[in-house]
Structure formats: C-alpha cells, structure tokens
Amino acid sequence: NQASVVANQLIPINTALALVMMRSEVVTPVGIPAEDIPRLVSMQVNRAVPLGTTLMPDMVKGYA
C-alpha cells in the first residue's frame, strides 16, 4: 500500500512545512504520496491541519 503524508503536529494556516511536521503512514483515503515529502518542505498550507490529518493536494499552496 502507498504511504501518504500525515501531519505530525497541528500545522497552523499559512505555515511553511518542515520535515518535523510530517510523517508517512498508510491511510485511507490516500493523500499526497510520502515520496513527495522533500518537495513539500517550505510550501505553505492554506488551512489549519490538525495532528494526524492526511495532507491532500488542495491543502498545500502550489502543490497541485
């Protein structure tokens, strides 16, 4: 199964993503693939992302 990017902490709106904020986990539904974690670093989220939430492409500015 494909691992997705999951929030490792609460990520406030407009926060630039850092490695420590993300982990990979096999979840349903599938979100952003875990292999894209390096690409996500320094991109901003466009909403608050609670701990344990799967990151979806529409949550990250400039990802989709």
Rank of each mutant, 00 (worst) to 15 (best):
T28Y: 13
N46F: 07
R39H: 13
M59Y: 13
V60N: 00
M56P: 01
P33W: 08
T15F: 06
A64Q: 15
Q9T: 13
S42W: 08
L51Q: 15
N46M: 11
L40P: 02
A18Q: 12
V20F: 14
A64Y: 13
M22D: 02
A16S: 08
V45K: 00
P57V: 06
A34L: 03
V60M: 04
V5G: 01
I13Y: 11
D36H: 14
V30D: 10
D36K: 10
A34P: 06
V26P: 07
L55I: 13
I11N: 01
R47Y: 07
V27E: 01
S24T: 15
V26E: 08
D58C: 05
G62R: 09
Q2R: 12
N1M: 13
R23N: 07
P38G: 10
T53H: 12
N14M: 07
Q44L: 12
V26L: 13
V26Y: 11
Q44M: 15
A7E: 02
I11R: 00
I32C: 04
V30G: 10
M22L: 14
M43E: 04
V20T: 15
P57T: 06
R47L: 08
Q2F: 13
L51T: 11
N1A: 14
M56K: 08
A18Y: 06
M56S: 07
A48M: 11
D36N: 12
L10Q: 11
P33C: 05
D36F: 10
P29Y: 03
Y63M: 05
R23D: 06
N46K: 14
Q9K: 12
P29T: 04
V45W: 02
L51D: 13
V5I: 09
I37K: 06
T54I: 07
A3K: 12
Q9N: 07
A48Y: 12
V6M: 04
A34T: 07
L10P: 14
V26D: 09
V27G: 03
T28C: 05
I11M: 03
T15Q: 11
V30W: 10
A34K: 06
D58E: 13
E35A: 15
V27P: 00
V27W: 03
G52E: 04
L19P: 09
M59S: 05
N46T: 15
V26C: 06
S42M: 11
M43A: 08
P38L: 12
S4P: 01
V27Y: 03
Q44W: 09
V49H: 01
T15N: 04
E25A: 12
M43Y: 09
R23H: 06
Q9L: 11
R23S: 10
M21G: 03
E25F: 07
P33Q: 06
I11P: 01
M21N: 06
V30Q: 11
V49Y: 03
N14E: 08
P38F: 11
Y63E: 03
T28D: 11
A48T: 12
P57L: 05
T53M: 12
A7T: 13
I13K: 15
L17N: 00
E25L: 13
M59W: 12
T15Y: 07
V26F: 08
L51H: 11
T15P: 00
L19N: 06
N1Y: 13
V5D: 01
V26W: 10
P12Y: 05
D36C: 05
V49N: 01
T28M: 13
V6C: 04
M22P: 00
V30P: 14
V49Q: 02
G62P: 04
P50F: 09
L19I: 09
A16C: 07
L55C: 02
A18S: 13
L10Y: 15
P33H: 11
N46A: 11
Q44C: 05
E35V: 13
R39D: 07
N1D: 14
P29C: 04
N14F: 13
P57D: 05
V45N: 02
P38D: 11
G31I: 01
A34S: 13
M59I: 05
L51S: 14
V60Q: 00
L19W: 09
G31K: 02
P57I: 06
S4C: 04
T54D: 02
G31R: 02
P57K: 08
V5F: 02
I37V: 06
Q9M: 14
A16V: 14
I32S: 01
V45L: 09
I13T: 14
V60L: 07
T53C: 06
A18D: 11
Q9G: 05
M43F: 09
K61W: 09
A7S: 11
N8V: 09
S4R: 00
A48H: 15
A64P: 14
L55Y: 00
Q2H: 14
A16W: 10
A48E: 13
I37Y: 03
A3W: 15
N46G: 09
T53A: 10
I37F: 03
M43W: 07
Q2C: 07
V27C: 05
A3P: 12
L51N: 11
T28R: 09
P50S: 14
T53S: 12
P50H: 11
R23I: 07
S4W: 03
Q44F: 09
Q9E: 11
L19M: 13
K61V: 13
I32W: 02
R47T: 12
M56I: 06
Y63R: 03
V20D: 12
L17W: 02
S42H: 14
I37H: 02
P38M: 10
V30H: 14
V45P: 02
I13D: 10
A16M: 12
S42L: 08
P33S: 09
P50L: 12
L51R: 15
G62Q: 09
A16T: 14
V20H: 13
S4A: 02
V20I: 13
V20P: 13
M22Q: 00
G62T: 07
S42K: 13
P33I: 06
E35R: 12
I13H: 09
I11F: 00
R47I: 14
V20R: 10
L17V: 03
L17R: 00
V6Y: 02
I32Y: 01
N1R: 08
V45I: 07
V30A: 15
A3S: 09
A3F: 11
V30L: 14
I32F: 02
S24W: 10
I13G: 11
G31L: 02
M59H: 07
V6D: 00
I13N: 15
D58K: 09
V30T: 11
T15L: 04
M22E: 02
D36W: 10
M43V: 04
T54G: 02
M22F: 06
I11Q: 00
A64E: 13
A18K: 14
I13S: 12
L10K: 10
G52P: 02
D58V: 08
M22R: 00
I13P: 10
L51I: 15
P29Q: 05
S42Y: 11
G31H: 01
Q2G: 14
G52T: 02
M59K: 01
E35M: 14
L51C: 06
A16P: 10
V45A: 04
N8C: 04
N8M: 08
P50T: 12
